[in-house]
Amino acid sequence: MKLLFKRPRSLREIPTHYCPGCGHGIVQRLVAEVVDELDIRERVIGVAPVGCAVIAYDYWDFDCSEAAHGRALAVATGIKRMRPENIVFTYQGDGDLAAIGTAETIHAANRGENLTVIFINNAVYGMTGGQMAPTTLLNQKTTTTPYGRRADREGYPLKISELIAQLPAVRYVERVALYSPQAVFIAKKTIKQAFQNQIENRGFSLVEVLSPCPTYWGMSPKEAMDWIRDVMIKEFPLGRIR
């Protein structure tokens, strides 16, 4: 009998705390698969964010560190500079990476740190109960934009990937989404490339993943995936940015 599907070695067998239909579980599995396939489990060091993925280190079966909210790329810089032989990545939400951690993100990118960044854009703050994120769409309702996000008050969705793609030291920026099995496949390939870049010492690589938060979008898991495909990618176009 041929084994077609199994739990990656780098993923622990424990119950998930994520809501049904959440994208975090999918991406954390993809990271674990990529780590296995590149055979770097004994070399990799993950940096978890503050956000719904705060206990990512409970799922991944390799060395990990926490980081204060927004500081993952500063922590990762310290780790990678001391241990260039390790493969160091951060996994961060949009509040973490593009609001409170904007300075850390831009400057780690601008220094061209040889790091891999997995950026989960779900257009809300999940962990704190569905507030506006820097990436919240115009007119999108959240607990802190109960009448919808307004450009004249809250500004426009922040496209941090496009911003950092302009920096000369940045190597690789690509946006992917989780709305279908094919899209998930592309996401995995892209994540793998971002790790491969680091293994080859090519510098700063970031993958932005448009990821469903059915709970705070007030949708079913299926509706959330469709919303990414039909609405979100119009604001955040997919593909290679750099």
């Binding site: 560190s65 310290g78 300075a103 850390e104």
Partner: peptide
Amino acid sequence: FIQAESELSAINMVFGASST
């Protein structure tokens, strides 16, 4: 040696380096 973009970043770089 790293000149960080802020003290926030500097102390968190130290966190990372120390964790190794």
